[in-house]
Design a protein around this nucleic acid. Structure first.
Length: 421
DNA sequence: TCTGGGGTCCTAGGACCC
DNA sequence: TCTGGGGTCCTAGGACCC
């Protein structure tokens, strides 16, 4: 008996956030639209609408019949926002994800700026993932708009190398949601991920093992998921630009220059080898909240403001933990200074917690270990070493008395903030 | 014209124990 | 008194991804 050949799909929704917005605002179809800008973008849009059409309740986010003129343009945007997604029409102008909005405003001032609406995206994310698992149950979540799917044992999953099943999934998602996606099918996750980029948007690409040298080797190393800007730069320094050139190096040479583990992985990846399974369930390792300030804040001069933000972040993390049913025992902070340098500090507690007061107190201790001469642009709070609340609920793990005692100490609010800043 | 927010994984050094 | 490994935990930083 022989095992069926592995067929793994990578499915990537096309310009997901922007496409969801276009479902709600069809009048924007074909126009350059960028999503981002955080709270400010939302306030701008709502403020305009309240002035223009004061009779309606604009917090409802129902703008399907709103004239184009009422949508805010990128031109003149000031602030720290970045682009989360851009429509294909906007990408023509060279704007793209993670770009600062002020830069985007220069490249494409006429672009329409929409605020992000995660609740909507999560809603459509759940919808398309349910459609997929109804057809092919072995699916790995890779975020709101991406998944891996194991086609191997799905009836029809081998037909035309997976194209037939990919087409069925693509059509089912479109019929239900009106959204398009791109799919790559290959012998493993590494190649499937690359394949899903070959034909975008709304494409399907099939890669077979024997196409390694003809299809994969001419590609830039950067196309390998896991090779980022730094590794790419270093590879270039050694005259390695394509995956084929990477594959030609000796494993020992790669290990010598990139470390034992990374070197071995680079060699395997360049040869299209990847045995990782499609993982249908995973547990979070950490939960965090962070925020970039509207303006850089000084630890002494802006003490009150920072203290309030710090406390709010701790409360948010605690609420997230409680809502999701986790407790953790490693409390950490992250700071980013005005020169963009970041530092982290963390401390591991004896007992698990999801208590805002204890998190605040411990995070405060961490903060005391950081020199605060420079102004800050970002502050974050993280809780790691997570376990399910139920699994930690025995007396040896959570000491309720300790939690209550330390919580009351820290929740004095004003007093503890005084010490911290 | 500076660069969001939420994650994972890896490395490396020091403490501590056997 | 000095020496060596190995294992695990903790902490800090960094690369990378969506």
């Amino acid at each position: 008996m022989t095992l069926p050949a592995r067929r793994i799909a990578h499915l990537d929704m096309d310009a997901f956030y922007a496409s969801v917005e276009l479902l709600r605002y069809p009048q924007l179809k074909g126009l350059p639209v960028v999503i981002g800008g955080g709270r400010r973008a939302e306030d701008d849009l709502l403020a305009r609408l309240r002035v223009a059409l004061p009779e309606r309740d604009w917090t409802a986010h129902d703008l399907a019949d709103i004239p184009l003129d009422f949508f805010p343009r990128l031109k003149g945007y000031v602030g720290r926002g970045v682009i989360t997604t851009a429509t294909y029409a906007a990408r023509q102008f060279g704007v793209g994800s993670a770009m600062g909005l002020m830069k985007a405003a220069r490249l494409c001032p006429q672009a329409i700026l929409l605020p992000v609406d995660f609740e909507q995206y999560r809603h459509y994310s759940r919808r398309f993932k349910t459609i997929i698992t109804d057809i092919a149950p072995v699916m790995e979540d890779r975020g709101v708009d991406e998944v891996y799917i194991d086609f191997t044992n799905v009836p029809g999953g081998q037909r035309e190398g997976g194209r037939v099943l990919a087409r069925l999934i693509q059509k089912s998602i479109f019929d239900d949601t009106g959204l398009t996606c791109s799919v790559g099918v290959a012998p493993n996750k590494l190649l499937a991920k690359m394949a899903s980029e070959f034909d975008k948007p709304n494409g399907i690409s099939i890669v077979h093992e024997h196409q390694l040298t003809s299809v994969i080797w001419p590609l830039a190393c950067r196309k390998i998921n896991g090779i980022g800007p730094k590794a790419d730069e270093k590879l270039r320094g050694h005259g390695i630009e394509t995956i084929g050139q990477l594959a030609a190096r000796e494993p020992a040479w790669l290990q010598q220059h990139f470390g034992e583990k990374t070197g071995a992985w680079l060699f395997e990846a360049a040869h299209g080898r990847d045995e990782r399974a499609v993982v249908t369930h995973s547990e979070p390792v950490s939960i965090s909240r962070e925020t970039t300030f509207e303006r850089d804040l000084h630890a002494v001069r802006d003490k009150a403001e920072l203290g309030a933000i710090f406390t709010r972040l701790c409360q948010s993390v605690a609420a997230d933990l409680q809502r999701k049913g986790y407790v953790g025992r490693t409390i950490g902070i992250k700071l980013r200074f005005d020169d963009f340098q970041s530092v982290t500090r963390d401390q591991t507690l004896e007992h698990y917690t999801a208590d805002a007061g204890l998190i605040r107190q411990t995070a405060g201790q961490c903060l005391k270990r950081v020199p605060l001469q420079r102004r800050l642009r970002l502050l974050g709070v993280r809780v790691g070493s997570l376990v399910h609340t139920a699994d930690a609920a025995d007396a040896s793990s959570i000491d309720a008395g300790t939690v209550a005692r330390q919580a009351s100490k820290a929740s004095g609010g004003e007093a503890s903030e005084q010490q911290l800043f």
